[in-house]
């Protein structure tokens, strides 16, 4: 059966999906970054991002513009991520993986509780990062906000890729993630590299949070919990070991969730999340390492 496809709607819905997926991708990337270096999923990543978003809200409330607050929050989050690693994770650095997982769960509640204590549980709003006007490209109207979200997400991903690929510290970060013992023998301060990874992850989460909040009518301390779920799903879909996979997985998931919700009547808005997760489950049954994960190549 041939369907008459409404290309305008398809393009619009795809961009909306990419916009959401891009913000999930940033959090997914943060999760993968820490997973690669410690073998642990940081369950507090979303709450840390939420905390950063509240910091941005406070800064804006004190008279800063959105983008001034954005960059200041990035710096604060980076430093905060490093501090959290030094204070909370360092003592359990050599502990079994399960111990560290429990510590990140504890961190989830501590950060969440701290945010509720500092900012109380009423709802807030964040000003828009971009103009809310639509823009017409090739006869199709898109929201500048969606396009802006996509641009910033991909820009952050590109910056991170450049850092990892072309800088000495990026190379050291990759070496540390692959083989900490040996990296130490080369003189790399592995412990600091882990802290740096937490700083980068926190900063990426902050970007995700600060772009997620303006799109909502209002937000509270639960802001990042759905985002964390989608980010985890995107990361697992792409392969937890692969930063590239996490980004592509999250973008695919964003588009998939949005398109199925739009086009498949019986899915609608209620069922699109369970359907998305069912598809991920299907992918993992066929390819347990995710779409882009690969078992590490080693000749024996």
């Amino acid at each position: 059966m041939l369907l008459a496809i409404d290309w305008t709607q398809l393009a619009q819905q795809t961009v909306i999906g990419l916009s959401a997926g891009g913000l999930w991708a940033l959090l997914a990337l943060a999760i993968v970054l820490i997973y690669r270096s410690t073998g642990v999923i940081n369950f507090a990543q979303g709450e840390m991002a939420m905390f950063s978003t509240f910091i941005a809200w406070s800064l804006i409330n004190h008279g800063l513009s959105y983008w001034e607050a954005f960059f200041l929050t990035l710096a604060i989050s980076f430093a905060g991520g490093i501090a959290i690693e030094r204070v909370v994770i360092r003592p359990v650095e050599r502990a079994p993986v399960l111990t560290i997982v429990i510590v990140t769960l504890g961190l989830f509640f501590v950060v969440d509780g701290a945010a509720r204590w500092i900012w109380s549980s009423e709802t807030r709003t964040l000003p828009n990062a971009f103009s809310t006007r639509p823009i017409t490209i090739a006869g199709v109207a898109f929201s500048i906000q969606d396009l802006g979200n996509i641009a910033v997400s991909l820009g952050v991903v590109a910056l991170l890729a450049l850092l990892f690929r072309f800088t000495k510290v990026g190379l050291a970060l990759r070496a540390t993630a692959g083989n900490p013992e040996e990296s130490r023998l080369l003189g790399i301060r592995v412990s600091w590299m882990l802290a740096l990874g937490w700083g980068l992850a926190a900063a990426m989460g902050a970007v995700s949070g600060m772009l997620t909040a303006p799109a909502l009518a209002s937000f509270d301390q639960n802001l990042m919990q759905p985002v964390l779920l989608y980010a985890l799903a995107g990361a697992v879909l792409g392969g937890l070991e692969s930063p590239f996979g996490a980004v592509v997985g999250s973008l695919l998931l964003g588009v998939f969730v949005n398109l199925t919700g739009t086009y498949v009547d019986w899915i609608g808005t209620d069922l699109r999340v369970p359907v998305a997760f069912a598809v991920i489950l299907g992918v993992l049954l066929v390819k347990p390492t995710g779409l882009f994960g690969r078992p590490s190549a080693r000749r024996v």
């Binding site: 000495k168 190379l171 050291a172 990759r174 070496a175 692959g178 083989n179 013992e181 040996e182 990296s183 130490r184 023998l185 080369l186 003189g187 790399i188 301060r189 592995v190 590490s296 190549a297 080693r298």
Partner: peptide, 30 residues
């Protein structure tokens, strides 16, 4: 270990002590 390496002691551990995920050039740079 980091600071011992910084003194100019190169430890080549047993069992092909390379960083297998990185390229040959990157191993040399490290």
């Amino acid at each position: 270990p980091e600071s011992v390496a910084r003194l100019g002691i190169a430890h080549v551990p047993e069992g092909r002590g390379t960083l297998s995920e990185l390229s040959v050039a990157e191993n040399l740079r490290l």
